[in-house]
Write a protein that binds this DNA or RNA. Structure first.
Lengths: 152, 152
DNA sequence: GCATAATTATAGCTGTTGCTATACTCGATC
DNA sequence: GATCGAGTATAGCAACAGCTATAATTATGC
């Protein structure tokens, strides 16, 4: 009973290679989610209060402070932030660029959901997860819809 | 320089508790992503070829076979699948229910993206990641839009 | 300036998801 | 019915993301 899938095109299964590529993309996005969340949040905290302390980041993300410390070390190794011991954390140029991009994408997704008729609270919460999985093409479609529907 | 954020409402920062809740929801969704992907894929494989073998699951997901074996053990512990040694893997009642729900959500998201004007390839790939972060309310909005635009 | 509070650093644990390498079992072929 | 290839199981490793507990450091208050 080992029929090749090609003989049963009525099934829900698509081409295996395409399937793999979709999952690979989703895994890659999953890997970058936290990094983008951190960088985006750090940029917001600096923009709001001039500094980004570990305790504030931890309080915003809802995790413990050592979890933040470990992640910041990783971000520093990746060249996204610069931290001085017992001092605040700052974004490097590339970290700042990633933050700007993430924040813009986040903003578009949230605005799009609202334009679609989703409640602001749900839009905010869903956008936090969806933003990381939206490709450039889909983001552009979101932006067009949001602009043409409610704003412009 | 520790001003409470409430004195600077022009900043991009929202209420901390709300922020935490958004991130908590995103983390929870992330935790369930893989489980849903597996269950959905297993249902598809069984529906297509009558069985779901580890090698096929691994080939579809783009991971190694031991990775699949380990995950199946976890799914079995969670009561979602039933596996007999050296035999195939089958869905339990709750696993089947989760698969049906995941597949439906996936289908709606993909259809919605297509209705929005996104290319089929991008819609397929983005849907793989987005589906896990769409709440019931947003899903309903997606369904309404897809129905009113292209299908019905 | 010194004690204390707040913050950060570090150690060590758990659970998850991936990998390679290797042993085992099943089924089919001869 | 022994062999051999396909498929599965298992062992062991690494990276990641979370935690608690505790030490080190900075900042604050007196």
């Amino acid at each position: 009973m080992r029929e090749p899938p090609s003989s049963a095109p009525d099934g829900p299964l698509i081409d295996p290679e395409v399937h793999v590529e979709s999952f690979r993309q989703a895994r890659e996005a999953r890997r970058l989610e936290l990094v983008e969340d951190y960088v985006e949040l750090i940029a917001d905290l600096i923009g709001d209060g001039g500094e980004a302390r570990q305790v504030d980041i931890a309080a915003r993300l809802g995790v413990a402070q050592p979890t933040v410390a470990k992640m910041l070390k990783r971000l520093a190794e990746d060249g996204l932030v610069q931290q001085r011991p017992y001092r605040g954390v700052f974004l490097t140029a590339s970290g700042e660029a990633l933050a700007v991009q993430s924040r813009e994408r986040h903003r578009i997704v949230e605005r799009f959901l609202c334009a679609l008729g989703v409640s602001p609270e749900t839009a905010r919460r869903d956008a936090e997860g969806i933003e990381h999985h939206v490709s450039a093409e889909t983001l552009e479609a979101f932006r067009r819809f949001a602009d043409g529907r409610s704003d412009a």
